[in-house]
């Protein structure tokens, strides 16, 4: 099987723990990621993304390909950062894959992150394999984005499972009110 070449990939990494940040930077570099931009919390990450949008030359990158962010950070935590990326008009790419690294594994937290438009979750404590798996997932199995009156983010339905009983998913691609955007 061919090997990924991450040399042209830029990862924005928001992590307040210096120890974990170093580990992630080193791991991503060893895996061949061309640029890793480390920041210490969500507000620094937002400032960097604004710069990418307004002055990519100064930012030193044209585009951030993947965001990896811790959840529990201060003053701007990972959830507020994710919200900004997905919803704010100044966000340079509202569709960018967003991996949340977190020790929060309670079901209501997972749901909260999913509803905010998370791409993947990396539960702490993690292993190197876990990092590799998440990267492979976002490359090999990207999901369409969905925008309706209550949600914007990757399709929360990851599988097309057989369904017993009445089909309640009333909208298809051809239904009225459904718009497909390709690009």
């Amino acid at each position: 099987m061919a090997a990924y070449d991450f040399d042209r990939v830029t990862v924005l990494l928001a992590e307040d723990s210096q120890f974990i940040r170093s580990l992630l930077i080193n791991s991503l570099k060893i895996l061949g990621v061309g640029r890793v931009i480390p920041v210490e919390d969500g507000s620094q990450a937002i400032e960097f993304l604004k710069l990418v949008k307004t002055d990519p030359m100064k930012a030193g990158v044209q585009q951030v390909d993947v965001i990896i962010s811790n959840w529990d950070m201060s003053p701007v935590d990972g959830m507020m950062f994710l919200r900004w990326v997905r919803r704010h008009k100044e966000s340079p790419d509202r569709f960018v894959p967003f991996i949340m690294v977190t020790g929060y594994t309670e079901p209501h937290r997972v749901v909260q992150a999913r509803e905010m438009g998370l791409t993947e979750m990396l539960a702490k404590p993690f292993t190197i394999s876990n990092i590799g798996e998440r990267l492979s997932l976002i490359i090999e199995r990207p999901r369409q984005f969905v925008h309706n009156n209550s949600y914007f983010g990757p399709d929360r339905r990851r599988q097309d499972l057989p369904h017993k009983g009445v089909e309640q998913r009333v909208l298809t691609d051809k239904s009225e009110g459904v718009e497909i955007v390709r690009g």
Binding site: F95, H147, N149
Partner: peptide
């Protein structure tokens, strides 16, 4: 429009 689906080329891949 009730829902918009965005289907993009897999540029990362």
């Amino acid at each position: 429009t009730k829902v918009r689906f965005y289907r993009f080329k897999n540029r990362l891949k």
